[in-house]
């Protein structure tokens, strides 16, 4: 937070194929459509399916200077390697959304960090598409931070999804809402 309203730095990480980049782009697109300033920075190394993938998103009420996130306010991790890599970089009093379907350990982090442990893969399978686990996690994040809503993300989704994937819009929108519902039920917010 700054005097001029909110300033939120987020890192989203997982393995290649989990839709990490799409999740970041969707968050950025949603923020832009809500009239916020935003930057999205992908890791663009030799990432391949099965390798690691991460991206940085900054959402702000005012112009963003530096697009590089050193210490995020929020971290969404979809697998264990990402938690190990980025967990220690989370700010104190930060927020961790972790995919408990693929992370079986308790994170050893500062006690001021709030943790939402969500079985994103299982919830997505129940909805009929395991690939939507990223949307479940994003929905949980949006509901917790309350800067943007899962509905807004659903409306922005067609703008970041290639048209050939439009048939997946309904299940992904459901997944966003499912994540939001999970946060509502697990945390008194």
């Amino acid at each position: 937070m700054t005097a001029n309203g909110f300033y939120e730095e987020i890192i989203i990480a997982g393995f290649g194929g989990q839709g990490i980049m799409l999740t970041g782009k969707l968050l950025a697109q949603t923020a832009m459509q809500a009239g916020k300033e935003v930057t999205y920075m992908p890791s663009y190394g030799a990432e391949v399916r099965g390798g690691t993938a991460n991206c940085m998103v900054i959402i702000s009420e005012t112009k963003i200077a530096c697009p590089v996130v050193a210490k995020p306010d929020s971290l969404i991790v979809m697998n264990k390697a990402s938690l190990n890599k980025f967990g220690p970089r989370l700010k104190n009093h930060g927020l961790l959304i972790m995919n408990s379907s693929l992370i079986d350990t308790e994170p050893q982090l500062d006690e001021t960090i709030e943790i939402i442990s969500i079985p994103a893969d299982e919830l997505a399978v129940e909805l009929g598409s395991q690939k939507s686990a990223n949307m479940v996690a994003l929905g949980a994040y949006l509901q917790k931070r309350k800067l943007l809503t899962a509905d807004q993300a659903g409306q922005a989704l067609p703008n970041v999804l290639a048209k050939r994937y439009y048939k997946t819009l309904p299940v992904n929108i459901k997944a966003l809402q499912c994540g939001a519902e999970f946060t509502k039920s697990c945390c008194k917010v």
Partner: peptide, 10 residues
């Protein structure tokens, strides 16, 4: 540079 090429902004 690579960052400017890859990063997204409005």
């Amino acid at each position: 540079d690579g960052f400017l090429g890859q990063m997204m902004e409005p």
